[in-house]
Structures are given as C-alpha cells and as structure tokens.
C-alpha cells in the first residue's frame, strides 16, 4: 500500500497560551515558541507506518510512505524527522505559511495526489494552530474520493479500510474502498487501533507514536527529499478566506480559593446563584 501523509509544523501546542497579539492586531506572534509537528499529523504518520508493516517486524516496509509539507526551507526539519521515524520519501511544497489557506492546500494536494497516485492519503483531523479542520474533507471532495474523518481505529481489508470514527454519541464504522482520504483523531495511536493485513490481530503496539533511533536519524539524511513549487501544483494561488485582524481571548476575572465544601456550596448558592 502506498500512503501519502500530509504533515504541518505548528508552534508548540503545549505553550499555545504564550502566543502574543501585537497592539496592531495584524498577526499572531509565535516568536519564542518551538516548532513542533502538528500532533494529529504525527499520529497520521504513525498510522501510516502501522498500515505498511507487520507489527512484529516493523523495520520492513510493506509499501511506501511519502510525507509532504507546505512551507519554507526550514520545514524540511519536520520532514527529516518523519523520514527518521520510518517514512520513505519526502516532498516539500515551497511556500510561506501566511500565503496559504485550507482550500489552497487541498487544491495543491489534489495535484500532488494525481502525480503520486497513493492508495490512501492520511492526515490529522486538524492542525492545532488554525484549528480549521477542513483540508482532508476538501481534498476528498476535489478528488471525488470517499473519506473517513476523525478515525480512532483503522483495519486494512483487501482493497479497503474499515474505519471507526469518533462522532457525537459514539463510534461510527465506515468501510471505504481505496483510494480514500482518512483523517485521524487522538486515539488512533492506542495499542490496538491500527492493523495492516500483515499484522496479527493479537499484536499490541506501544501506546503513542514511535521514536527514531539514532542510526535511523543518520540514515534519514540519505532518504530522498524533493522540493516542488506551489505554482507547479496549482495555477490558482488565491486565498478564499482572508484575515483582517486578531485579538486575544477575553480575560476571565481572577477567582478565589474556597476554604471547604460548605463554603463552596454557600458561594455557588448565594453568590454565583447557580444552584
């Protein structure tokens, strides 16, 4: 199976409360925050690796995992890290972040999919900076492919994937015949979430994503990393969503510590009037 994984780098999501809005309100300043791979995209890569291996012998790839990102030269670090973890090949679409929106990324990915002809496109359900949650769905529509979003489980079948989706009120299971687009949710990296045809159903993965060993990091430098110009993928680089300004969230007034349960109940009743 050939899988294309779309990866985005984001400002450290565990310190997202440290983003600053300058007084001009013309941008969101993430200076000082480390770049990290978008967590959901990291999970998508892990799912792609699990789908292209026998869980018992994960070093041998049964198929190909190609990773792609959109960004300037330094985003190649994100790709190299993915190659070190096990991806076979990487593509960087050269562009600056602020000249992108979800629709443009989906258009460009469509052209890339037509070149690469993967069986599956995998990505996170959303990037945790823009929080838009749209590229996977848009790409599937542009390709006229079936999709399964918010995947918590994936089982490979002959020519298809059986996907458990996290939806309101439970888990909905879809069968998508390939090629298809799948976007992943948090629990896709649980020990029994993803099974390729090769992996025994009794196999349990370690919880979370795998880490690259030092030899793999060295070897990743020799893996192919191609650069593609955005203009080679889509002639239309216009943005459909335009930002006019940014503001910080409304501040909450400082709260108090109550001394005991009785104090809490009294305040909820008399002060906050919510009981």
């Amino acid at each position: 199976m050939k899988i294309l994984v779309a990866l985005k780098r984001v400002a450290d999501p565990d310190n997202a409360n440290k983003v600053k809005i300058p007084p001009s309100g013309d941008r969101i300043d993430t200076a000082g925050l480390e770049w990290k791979p978008n967590p959901f995209d990291e999970y998508a890569l892990e799912a792609a690796l699990r789908l292209t291996e026998d869980g018992k012998a994960p070093k041998a790839r049964a198929g190909e995992v190609v990773v792609v990102t959109f960004g300037p030269k330094e985003t190649e670090q994100t790709l190299r890290a993915a190659l070190a973890t096990g991806a076979d090949r990487a593509i960087r679409v050269d562009v600056t972040d602020d000249k992108l929106d979800g629709a443009l990324v989906a258009r460009a990915l469509k052209a890339l999919v037509e070149r690469e002809k993967p069986d599956v496109v995998l990505m996170g359900k959303q990037a945790v900076d823009g929080d838009s949650n749209q590229v996977g769905q848009s790409l599937a529509e542009l390709l006229d492919w079936p999709m399964a979003t918010f995947a918590a489980t994936i089982q490979e079948e002959q020519g298809a994937l059986l996907v458990g989706r996290e939806v309101d009120g439970g888990v909905a299971v879809l069968r998508v015949r390939l090629p298809a687009v799948v976007t992943v949710d948090l629990r896709i990296v649980a020990p029994t979430s993803v099974y390729s045809l090769k992996t025994a159903r009794t196999h349990k993965y370690n919880d979370g994503v795998r880490f690259a060993a030092l030899p793999a990091i060295m070897a990743s430098k020799k893996k192919p990393l191609a650069e593609v110009k955005l203009a080679d993928l889509t002639a239309d680089s216009g943005l459909k969503v335009q930002y006019h300004g940014f503001e910080p969230p409304p501040a909450r007034k400082a709260g108090i510590k109550v001394k005991d349960v009785a104090d809490l109940v009294a305040r909820l009743k008399n002060e906050a009037k919510v009981l």
Binding site: I28, D131, Q242, F246, P249
Partner: peptide, 20 residues
C-alpha cells in the same frame, strides 16, 4: 460579513471574511 473564530486552542481570535 466578518467572522470571529478561535485559533491556537482559543488563545487567539481571528477576524476573517470569505472571498467567494
């Protein structure tokens, strides 16, 4: 029409419009 939307886990709000 302009839309206010939370970004960065609600740590910033963007004001955007749709150009289509």
């Amino acid at each position: 029409l302009k839309y206010r939307r939370p970004m960065f886990a609600g740590n910033a709000f963007g004001l955007c419009s749709v150009a289509t």
